[in-house]
Each structure stands twice: as C-alpha cells, then as structure tokens.
Design a protein around this nucleic acid. Structure first.
Lengths: 241, 241
DNA sequence: TAGATTGTTAATCGATTAACAATC
DNA sequence: TAGATTGTTAATCGATTAACAATC
C-alpha cells in the first residue's frame, strides 16, 4: 500500500491502543472497502460518503458505517470519509503496514499463476519462496525465485508468515504439517479438503468446486421455481429435468 | 458424481417436493460434506456417524446434523448415515445430478490453470467454452477447446449456465455485462472488485488479496497479543513493529 | 442556520450450540 | 434390552438493519 505511507504514522498512533473486538464478519469486509478505496485515490477523489463507498463495495451504507465504527473511525458528519485516511486506517487494522512474507507450495498451474499474479507486492505481501517436491521442478526459476523443496526451506529458507498451498489434495495435509512445523500460523489452502492443524493456526480454504456448487444450488432453485412464465433471458436456455 | 448414479433415482423422488428453505449458511457447507464423503466411498466405507463426518469436514457434529435436517435427511438413529445415500441427497440438493455448462473468460495464467484443473468434469460441471479478447490467443486450443471471443460465443456458442471470470480487474465488469446479456445468471469472479449485475444474477467473488488480508489481520493480532512469553513456535520468528 | 451525513442505539433476523427425547 | 446416535427444541450468540440523535 505504497500510497498510504504518508498518512500511516498518525494512524498507527490511534490504532494501536484500540479495544480489540472487531467482529469476524467485519474483518471479512474490510478488504472490500480497501479495494474500493484504491481506485478513488487514483482518481484523486479525496472524500467519499458512506452511501457511495458502500455501493462501490457492494454492501449497505448502514453496514459500512457499522463496520467502520469498530475501527473507531474518523468520518466527518455531514461530509463523509477522507479517502486516504480511511484506507490507511483499514490497512493498519488489517496489518498491511508491514509486508508479510509468503511461501507458495505446489508449482503446478495454479501455483505458477499465483506466483505471477501481481496482486501480492505493494499490497502487504511478498512472495519470498516457492516450493515443490518434483525433482524436475526443484531448482528451476519461477518469477525470479528458485523453487526449493519444503524440507530445504525449513532448514535454510527465509522466515515466512503465510503459506499458500496449491498442491494436489493428497499432498495438502502433509504440506500443512510441515508449514506448521516451520512456524507458519496462517495458511491459505487451495487444495480441496479439510486441513487439521493446531488451534493457534489459522486456515482459510478456497475451493473452486465448492464455489461452483453453491452457484449450482441457486441456479437449480431458479430453474425449479416458476418453470412457467416468460422472464427467461435467453430463448435457447434449457430447463433441467 | 459418477458413483452416485445408482442411488440417484430414489433420491430425486424424495427431494423434489421438499419445503424449500435451506439456510444460506447450510448451503455453503453442503459442498464440504460432499467432499468429505467422496474418499469414504472410495475406501468402501458404507456408514458413518455424524461425529466422524463432522470431524472430516471440520465442523461440529451438532451443526452437521442440523444442516442435514434441512434436507429431510435419512440418518438412522443409533447407526449413522449411509455414505452413498447421503452423498446422493446432497448432490441432488446442490443440483449436481446434471452437468452445468461452464465458460471461462480470460485465458491468462489463472484461466489456463482452471481450464486444466480436473475438478470440473464428473463433479457436476463441464467446461464447454473458453474466451479471451487477445487476438494472439483467440483461435488457439487449450485443453481440447478452441478459444473464442465472448462476442462470438454470444452469437454462436453453446448454452452456458455459469461464467467464470479470470480476466484482469478492469475488464471484469464488461465481461459480466456480456455474460448477463447471454443469459448467464451465475458468475464466479476471480477478478478483484465488485461486479454490478441485475438482481436475478448470482455473483460469487474469490479474491486472493482479500483472503490474505484476512489472514494478515489474525496474524497481526497474534503478534500484538502477548508479545511477552514463550509459546512462539519458531525461534527465528520476528515480531513486527 | 439548514442540509447532509455520521455514529450509535435498539430491534430484528439468522446462525450456532447445548441438551435431550425419540428411536434404531 | 442396553447402548448409540439421530433429529429437534430451546437457548444463546452474533450479525444485519432501521431509525434517529448528534454534529459537521
């Protein structure tokens, strides 16, 4: 978050001694607000009302204000929020004023796609290591980094705070165990399946099949409901069953 | 879900005339249960208790039973659940007894990774089209499909039910608009940013940065809390600030 | 001041959990 | 029957929303 450096110092001050209890649901939305604020900053917009920002983030303004109130927010009644200050506050709350070192484990298509994805650096994260267990891949260079085995990283690698697992499902648990043994306490798992980890380790799972299945549920609901009348958008859409 | 075909017919019968109100939170967990059941089937396990299945899925048994009760589930008291029957029920509920046609839009690294990801076919989904707007990519073959422009798909492509957007963020809204115009009402968006779509369209967003930021929040919390004593798992872990 | 918009309170809603009766 | 485990009820908890007083 390079464009936030200027305002950071003031915010740290306020934020460090806060109450502590930000609801989990709010934490999940703070990144959306930050994401919506960035283009506003780039356009030179300095102030925004909750109603507008909420629309950009896809939530209700009342929810946005409630969420921000947990940060002890500094909106101005009758005016709105200072774009840069608000972004800095949120970045501070999310811990993005430092760069978290990330390792990606599993250099298949997905792992490579993530490694070459620009969205890490400058947004609070830096890929510091890549790992795979295929001897044909170990030692090759991907995006400026040499691929290692996870075992080598454990003994001689850089400190990592976050592990991203992009291995096939059968390997994921063993990889998670190794990451935990290395001291990693935050894991983002793209492999389908539940990971068992100690309590102090935080795992978030992203599963393509799960997402599609949730969409399929609603799609089916739409098709089963009112299979009668004429608001079907495409005339060649076929109704299941 | 090929291994479910045998039991499907019976289940359809029961499930079609159900009450209808499955809570959204339950819908989000049904895929996890299905995912946990598949390896059990493969191992030849025919029956499982809620306590065990819950552990495999990473939820509490009481929540699992509550969720399944919304399906009008057919567990047997004192015994447990029939693995295949339960999987068939869940697949039915999620609409996975048919194959949903999927288009992937954006043939960058991520789009290619998803196209070559095996988890679609046989799990209720089939990739029927790939799209990109780069003339250098249009016409090439990826995983047995020829890449088209989205405009060409709109006029002469197969029917699609679900659109997966893997374009850069600036292109995502226009792609979503085109998908909606084609009759697509379910969108899985990997591009960062909020998509504006009509009410009847269902969008799920998956954003790497968002997931990492949520992890960073908790990671920071751990580091800020008790920066004193000795339960730090790795001795070279550095505390921020 | 008048108008706009925040921050908060209270009400509602939905989701989770504990407890246990039903029953295989 | 006795033991095990489900399905459901009731209690708790957390999240969302509506309403509005505070205040710029």
């Amino acid at each position: 978050m390079s464009w936030l450096r200027g305002v950071r110092a003031e915010v740290v001050h306020e934020s460090v001694r806060r109450t502590g209890g930000v609801p989990e649901a709010t934490v999940g939305r703070l990144p959306l607000y930050l994401r919506a604020l960035t283009p506003l900053h780039d356009q030179g917009i300095t102030n925004i009302a909750s109603e507008e920002l909420a629309a950009l983030a896809g939530v209700r303004s009342t929810q946005l204000r409630k969420d921000l109130s947990h940060l002890g927010s500094y909106g101005v009644r009758g005016v709105g929020y200072d774009v840069d200050l608000l972004a800095a506050q949120i970045a501070q709350e999310l811990g993005l004023t430092q760069e978290w070192p990330v390792v990606i484990v599993g250099m298949g298509n997905l792992g490579r796609a993530l490694a070459s994805y620009g969205g890490f650096s400058g947004r609070g994260f830096r890929i510091v290591a890549l790992a795979d267990d295929d001897p044909a891949v170990v030692g090759t260079r991907v995006e400026g980094l040499t691929v290692s085995t996870l075992a080598d990283l454990a003994t001689a690698g850089p400190t990592v705070a976050i592990g991203v697992i992009t291995t096939p499902a059968p390997a994921a648990q063993a990889v998670a165990d190794q990451l935990v043994a290395m001291g990693v306490r935050s894991i983002l798992n793209f492999a389908p399946g539940h990971l068992t980890v100690p309590d102090e380790v935080d795992v978030r799972g992203v599963d393509l099949a799960t997402e599609l299945q949730i969409l399929a549920f609603h799609e089916q609901r739409r098709l089963l409901a009112v299979p009668t009348s004429g608001q079907v958008p495409s005339e060649d859409r076929e109704v299941a069953g």
